[in-house]
Structure formats: structure tokens, C-alpha cells
């Protein structure tokens, strides 16, 4: 698989994991935006919160931690595979920047992965 195609695959896995995380936290009307540029992948997910997400701050911090390239090839297939478990540690190892915005009950999570 060419590098560009691999990046598309990784983008799918990142979306899988984030979608699972938000659904497990009972978010409603989830929308997804994906943009693959030359040097980065931008992903945004937004929806309606039905209750607070207690570990959201921690998850965002984790995703802002340093990338861990050695985990990517080896463990990437785990991303998004957990039914009742999160793989946020792995997600944190694969993305560079993350932030969130909460306006009333609308939550938006933004993630960037540099290529």
C-alpha cells in the first residue's frame, strides 16, 4: 500500500476510534468532517451531548502528547476495534493536535495528524 493510501487508512481508523468514544458517551446526531491535505489530515466530529463526558479533558491532553511512530504500524489495527474499551492511548500516539469546543450542548472535537 502506498504511503498516501496508508494515511487514508489511518484517518479511517482514527475516525472509528473517535466515533466509538463519542457514541459510548451517548452523543446524538453525530457528524463527521474529514479533509486530507498534502501535509496533514484534519478530522472534526460534532454532535449533541446528552450528558457530560468526565474524561474529555484528559483524552484531549492525551491526543496532544507526542506522536509515537513505533506504535503506529504495529498496533494501528487495534484502533476502533474495542467494543466496550477505549484505545485512547493508541489514538494519542497517532495524532499530533487535538482540541474541543463546547457551546451549550453542541460538542465539536478537532484532531490533526501531520503527514
Amino acid at each position: 500500500m502506498k504511503r498516501r493510501e496508508r494515511e487514508k487508512y489511518k484517518a479511517r481508523k482514527i475516525i472509528d476510534e473517535l466515533t466509538g468514544y463519542l457514541l459510548r458517551n451517548n452523543i446524538k446526531k453525530l457528524s463527521i468532517y474529514l479533509e486530507i491535505e498534502e501535509d496533514r489530515i484534519n478530522i472534526s466530529l460534532w454532535g449533541q451531548l446528552t450528558c457530560t463526558i468526565p474524561d474529555l479533558e484528559d483524552v484531549i491532553k492525551l491526543m496532544n502528547a507526542k506522536r509515537v511512530p513505533e506504535m503506529e504500524e504495529y498496533y494501528e489495527h487495534l484502533l476502533g476495534s474495542g467494543i466496550n474499551a477505549n484505545d485512547m492511548n493508541l489514538l494519542g500516539a497517532m495524532v499530533d493536535e487535538a482540541s474541543y469546543e463546547l457551546k451549550e450542548d453542541r460538542l465539536e472535537v478537532r484532531v490533526t495528524r501531520f503527514i
Partner: peptide, 12 residues
């Protein structure tokens, strides 16, 4: 061959 850095396959 795949065009990735060696550090991404070091565990393998």
C-alpha cells in the same frame, strides 16, 4: 519497500 520510516516498524 513500503516507504515508511524504520522507526515505525522497529517493534516488528
Amino acid at each position: 519497500l513500503v516507504g515508511v520510516r524504520f522507526n515505525t516498524v522497529i517493534l516488528s
